[in-house]
């Protein structure tokens, strides 16, 4: 081992990222070579110094208390939720099976003679739990459908960014943050926008078009006090996306402060999340109370 060989492995050695053989080789060289020994010791103490002398911040006791409490509350809520849900589904299942038998005596007869139908039904009820779409998903999907197949008319039909920006000024006095969206890649084109109401809330509806003439709807919804936590959720790059499906459309939602966004189309959920992340960005500085992140 030469000094250069040792030097090349310096950091891996100090970071404890080498196998035993290399470790011994380097160790052997350092023990014999004064020059390398000094250098390695210097780097070692520098590494330690950086750890010891760097600033250590500690979180305030108030925030610490808030977090601990929030977690314990959520845990309790989750425990009682699961318990309640379990009791309920057990009840539901048995009463539904009984009702079914009462309504259809033939089933009961068949079941009496062919027991495996019963086990089949039990499996059916255990695994097939029909869930009606939540109102917000339904309304978003229906609004999208109106824009794709129906006769919804945009207030401003334009792909011109400046025109859109000007038009978005009128949404400035909404009490939730409305910033004009922009296309962030060459595949996404903005078609225009209009006022919209969803589950009794104000929203701005934006039509988008992606490759293959696929239409997307972006809704910017007043989400203050609105609960979307009951929807299915997924963590993608640190952001929580909620989703649902209705009328053959997928809906993906996410939250930014008091504003809830949704993106809807026939595309798969993952593509929707991709468009949400990469295809559009929000132009900052439109509304005074805007929460939108800065993209640099």
């Amino acid at each position: 081992m030469t000094c250069n060989d040792a030097k090349e492995m310096l950091y891996e050695y100090l970071d404890n990222e080498i196998d035993r053989d290399s470790y011994l080789q380097i160790k052997g060289h350092i023990d014999r070579c004064r020059k390398c020994c000094d250098k390695f010791e210097f780097e070692q103490s520098l590494k330690k110094l950086i750890k010891d002398r760097s600033q250590k911040f500690t979180i305030s006791q108030t925030v610490r208390g808030d977090i601990v409490k929030a977690l314990s509350d959520m845990r309790k809520a989750r425990e009682s939720d699961t318990k309640r849900e379990k009791e309920q589904t057990n009840e539901d299942k048995s009463s539904r099976v009984i009702q079914l038998f009462l309504k259809r005596p033939a089933y009961a007869l068949a079941a009496a003679f062919i027991p495996f139908i019963v086990s089949g039904l039990a499996v059916y009820f255990a695994f097939f739990k029909p869930t009606p779409p939540s109102p917000i998903i339904r309304e978003i999907a229906e609004c999208h459908d109106q824009h794709v197949n129906g006769n919804a008319v945009l207030e401003l039909a334009s792909s011109d960014q400046n025109e859109l920006l000007r038009h978005f000024n009128k949404f400035r006095n909404f009490n939730f943050a409305v910033a004009a969206p922009e296309s962030n890649d060459h595949k996404t084109k903005l078609l225009g926008c209009k006022d919209c109401y969803l589950v009794g809330r104000k929203s701005v509806h934006v039509d988008l078009e992606r490759k293959l003439n696929r239409k997307f709807s972006l809704e910017i919804i007043d989400g203050s006090g609105m609960n979307i936590n009951h929807l299915n959720e997924e963590l993608v790059d640190g952001r929580v996306y909620y989703f649902g499906r209705h009328k053959g459309y997928n809906v993906v939602l996410w939250r930014e402060g008091d504003t809830v966004y949704s993106l809807t189309s026939e595309a798969r959920k993952n593509e929707l999340i991709h468009v949400a992340k990469e295809g559009i960005r929000m132009r900052r500085g439109m509304a005074p109370q805007t929460f939108f992140p800065v993209r640099e």
């Binding site: 790059d237 640190g238 992140p293 800065v294």
Partner: peptide, 11 residues
């Protein structure tokens, strides 16, 4: 999680 939240939040 913290890092990705940071990236998303502050772009």
């Amino acid at each position: 999680i913290l890092r990705n939240t940071f990236i998303n939040k502050y772009r």
